[in-house]
Computed example of a mutant assay.
Amino acid sequence: IKVEELAEAQKRTEIKVEELAEAQKRTEIKVEELAEAQKRTEIKVEELAEAQKNTELALKDLARTVEFKIGGLGRKWGVESERSFRNGLTTILSDTGYEVLNYIVRDTEGFVFGHPSEIEIDVIVTGGKTLVVEIKASVSKSDVFVFLKKGEYYTKITGKKIDRMIMITPFVEDQAREVADQFNVTICDSITDLATSISP
């Protein structure tokens, strides 16, 4: 009986060993599958990293292109262009019934710039309203503050109330637009904006 029991126990042990061997085999297969999946993941990560690198290079190229074009626009819109645009605008508005005035005065006390200087202020009168206008190739935050000082100076020397202050420009910095909105200065960077702003 003991021998039979031992033989039965041995048989059960062998079955367990076979089951463990089978389980080990399945585990090894799973490990291989995980290793293969990991390898594919690493390849994907490398591909994504390469794509990200290419995207960053493309964005840098785009930024350089935009900067170049804006720089070209700024160069084209120099002082002479500002004068030409002002003269053309004056002619068009005068022909359509607007009164356009150009003040060139000597600010002897340095009210606008902090030192004595010549100040130029363009004014459009329409429907009984006075619009102070500034035409610039580009507008920065400091340009808006200077324009506000010009408006104050105009009121000081003429005693007239300003109904609207308008800056006309093809390029405006984001900070300049924020300051303009804060102080109710209208910035026109398109013909549509300009037409709407000067309408009676």
Rank of each mutant, 00 (worst) to 15 (best):
E134G: 06
R164H: 10
G114M: 03
E82G: 12
D107S: 05
G88H: 03
V105A: 10
E118A: 10
N102V: 08
V105D: 11
I104S: 14
R83Y: 14
G78C: 09
K160S: 15
T90E: 08
Y98C: 06
S84T: 15
V125M: 11
T155C: 11
I157F: 09
S140M: 03
N87V: 11
T108Q: 14
E152C: 07
Y153I: 14
T130R: 12
E152A: 12
T155M: 12
S140F: 00
F113V: 14
T158F: 14
S84M: 14
V133K: 03
F147Q: 01
S140G: 07
V139K: 01
S138D: 08
L148E: 09
V79P: 10
V139Q: 00
F145M: 05
E99K: 15
S142N: 06
D143E: 13
E99G: 12
I121L: 01
I124E: 03
T96E: 14
F85L: 13
I104W: 05
I135A: 01
V100P: 03
K136H: 00
Y153F: 15
T126R: 15
R164D: 12
Y98K: 11
I162Q: 04
F113Y: 14
D122R: 04
S117L: 11
K160P: 13
E120V: 02
T126F: 11
D122Q: 05
D122C: 01
S94D: 09
I124A: 06
D107V: 09
S81C: 11
I121W: 04
S81F: 12
T91Y: 13
L89A: 03
T108D: 14
S84C: 10
V79H: 07
T130F: 08
E80P: 07
I119M: 04
E99N: 14
I119D: 02
S117Y: 12
G88S: 06
T126A: 15
G110V: 09
D163G: 15
I121K: 01
K150L: 12
K150Q: 13
K76P: 02
S94G: 11
D95V: 09
I168F: 01
S94I: 08
N87Q: 09
S142P: 02
G128N: 10
W77E: 05
V123F: 02
G151Q: 08
V133R: 04
S142C: 02
V133H: 06
T158M: 13
N102C: 08
G88K: 05
R106D: 12
E80C: 06
I124C: 03
G97D: 10
G151E: 06
L148N: 10
T91N: 13
K150Y: 09
I119L: 06
I119F: 01
I157S: 06
S117W: 11
E118I: 14
K129C: 14
E80F: 02
E118H: 08
I135W: 00
V112Y: 00
V132Y: 00
G88W: 00
L101C: 04
M167H: 10
R86T: 15
T91P: 08
V100M: 02
V100I: 03
S138A: 07
L131R: 04
G78R: 00
G110H: 01
V139F: 00
D122E: 10
V146R: 03
G110D: 07
I166E: 00
T158R: 12
I168S: 01
